[in-house]
């Protein structure tokens, strides 16, 4: 399965990309599988996406958690805690 992954704010700057398409084995997965895969890239990914980093995720433009299911074609966003208002 392929999913589109978007990065915002500090993560976008640290990674140097706004979005990318990631391929995962199987037809379905938990959102956590995507973060695990990215973390294995080494720095700066492993530090920025550390378990205690406090980042948030959205699946198909709705706030999600690491146990949210994802499937082929989904849009996953990973970002720091929001600071609007």
């Amino acid at each position: 399965m392929k999913v589109k992954v978007l990065y915002f704010a500090k993560l976008r700057e640290k990674f140097g990309i706004e979005n990318e398409v990631i391929e995962l084995p199987g037809e379905r997965a938990y959102a956590a599988a995507i973060v695990d895969l990215l973390r294995k890239r080494g720095e700066p990914w492993s530090t920025e996406l550390a378990l205690d980093s406090g980042n948030r995720m959205a699946v198909n433009q709705t706030l999600a958690g690491i146990v949210t299911p994802v499937q082929d074609g989904d849009e996953i966003a990973i970002f720091p805690p929001v600071t609007g208002g």
């Binding site: 915002f8 704010a9 500090k10 406090g54 959205a58 706030l63 966003a77 970002f79 720091p80 805690p81 929001v82 600071t83 609007g84 208002g85």
Partner: peptide
């Protein structure tokens, strides 16, 4: 709810340079 759930991020410019605002 807007402050904690809507996807906005602030970056402020100060005399020391730019920085992302922490939640």
């Amino acid at each position: 709810y807007l402050k904690t759930r809507a996807p906005f991020w602030k970056k402020e410019g100060t005399p020391q340079g730019e920085r992302w605002v922490e939640a």
